[in-house]
Design a protein around this nucleic acid. Structure first.
Lengths: 337, 337
DNA sequence: CTGAAAGCGCTAACAT
DNA sequence: ATGTTAGCGCTTTCAG
């Protein structure tokens, strides 16, 4: 009741109303719909509110309006360098729309993702799910309840931003072919990752068309260590060039190759994806660009539209990729090792 | 009123009460204070709630109790690789205490940091400020209002977790001396960064004691480009080894050195800080470990204590660092270039 | 052990 | 243009 412990200290709308000699509704309106009030009243109320240090109580507002002013972004692993720029630009864009953002890290687990979403759902207006590991069914259920935008997951009818790696992938394969490589390895990412499926497909199709052989090496969770440890399989395959699911794996491969005395790009060509680490590294990695930041902004815009607009806006934004050629690709060695 | 638009759909406590044939208070108690109820009732109510998919409405709870179940972590730049592991472990730990976490990215600006905090304050129970750029005054004001934990900022009386780089720094200097270097360069970070001040001090003191000269090169915002562009100054200084404010800068330096044909570690030794990229890179960087993840967990614990405990707990947690020697340090070249 | 009822701070119909 | 009033969904005293 009135005297409950733990209540955050704060000036209420009632205090302001009393001090300003107006009703509480007037104070409320002075902030939410000033058009309904006379200029004077608005100015007066606001001045008093300011003097008292009044800050609206979000919880109460939310309870009354059903709008929270919060959104949530959930990612499988914020420590994966692909996501920070995404989250960053998303939060910046959200700020413009005066939305605060919750961050959820699902630790690559569909189950934990579901829990996070359930926990967050009652206090957010919408979700951005980046590379969700959740089942299609669950995602659709969520999207039916709350405005939801997907990143790198292609579910028809649900607003989504897709980074289309096929452009960059195709360029990569073509470049490798031109350099004289004939046998490629692909260090594949997690099975339930849409990005991986897409990359796999673009890669195999282009290779087939170009008459190249491609060996698929499963690395599982895309980590540095996994990449490094996959090198033996790559070498065994007889490939002279490799494309990795992402730059982290690519770095691992670089390390594994070096240990074996195989030098890049002299003996072996290497291409990464996402361009997250690629430019920050010596030697600089050839990589397929990804524009995670662009995706973040796009996702935020999509969600804001979803929240504000009556009309559903564009429901799928595609971001193209291209190959960024740097130090790790060169002509195929004359012979295999 | 009842039929307001935009209200989020959801099962309320009333629905559960009706379905379970008990009062709303009972449902409430079944979740918040089950000791007060009979085992059976609790089980029954919970089962019904689960079946209906009931999730407590945080806003309403908050309104009633003054507790939000949310905390906020604000960082200067989530894209800086130091922070993701910190945020990640923090969010994991928060989850254990059933706290949801807001993420704020201040973009290295004290002003934006203040705005974020003001925006978030009315709906969080506490803050974790990681490497805050805010003035001491403002931080103290905040800490007086809301439980606040600092990371890498040393303000007496405010709970904080400090990563003490001096250990690793000292080791680095000593190693470089042992390798025969006599003139070091320090690529310094942002002035208002506590970490930088601390590193600067440890470095200059140890160097003085060890009889080494150290040239300080200001790089400003710690980025790859800034590091690369600082190389000319480093070379001019006549140093044969450099310690960089962090690994990102260190990578930049590596690139700049390479461009000039100076090879690491043959001609030049290089040490980074934070060990964020260092292990993921070829060549692997010697770096001062930082344990951002540990810091995140510690900060979360500190904050949870602050929220729950009556007694203030330990108010400062220090995390030690050490040098991780990898490929980029070696004996000093015979002569300067 | 359980129910009834008041009220958290705010907004939005409905008056005036 | 402003005041009155009825809740939003939940917790918690107070009765029983």
């Amino acid at each position: 009741m009135a005297s409950r412990a733990g209540r955050a200290p704060g000036v209420t709308i009632g205090d302001v109303a009393t001090a300003a000699q107006v009703s509480r509704s007037t104070v409320s309106r002075a902030f939410t719909r000033p058009q309904l009030l006379s200029q004077e009243t608005v100015k007066h109320v606001r001045a008093v509110a300011m003097r008292l240090g009044y800050v609206g109580n979000q919880a109460a507002r939310a309870l009354s309006t059903g709008r929270f002013g919060n959104i949530a972004v959930v990612v499988p692993d914020i420590a994966n360098p692909f996501f920070p720029p995404l989250v960053r630009s998303l939060q910046l864009a959200a700020e413009t729309a005066d939305l605060a953002v919750f961050l959820g890290d699902s630790d690559e687990s569909a189950e934990r993702e579901a829990k996070l979403i359930a926990r967050l759902a009652p206090q957010v207006e919408g979700f951005v799910l980046a590379s969700p590991r959740l089942s299609e069914k669950l995602i659709r259920e969520l999207a039916a309840t709350r405005p939801t935008v997907l990143v790198n997951r292609d579910l028809d009818g649900i607003p989504r931003v897709l980074i289309d790696s096929s452009g960059g992938m195709t360029e990569a394969v073509l470049l490798l072919k031109k350099l004289g490589h004939q046998r490629l390895a692909y260090l594949a990412g997690p099975r339930d990752s849409w990005s991986d499926q897409q990359r796999r497909e673009a890669l195999t199709q282009t290779s087939a068309k170009a008459g190249l052989t491609v060996e698929i090496v499963e690395v599982g969770r895309p980590t540095y260590a996994a990449g490094r440890d996959s090198v033996s399989a790559v070498v065994r395959s007889g490939a002279t060039a490799a494309i990795a699911f992402d730059d982290v794996v690519s770095q691992g491969v670089l390390a594994g190759l070096e240990v074996r005395g195989i030098s890049v790009p002299t003996d072996f060509s290497l291409v990464g994806c996402d361009d997250t680490l690629a430019a920050l590294t010596t030697p600089a990695l050839t990589s397929v660009s990804a524009g995670a930041a662009t995706a973040g902004t796009a996702a935020a815009k999509l969600l804001v539209n979803l929240l504000e607009a009556v009309e559903p806006s564009a429901d799928c934004v595609t971001i193209a990729t291209h190959l960024v050629t740097r130090a790790t690709t060169a002509a195929a060695p004359k012979s295999t090792f």
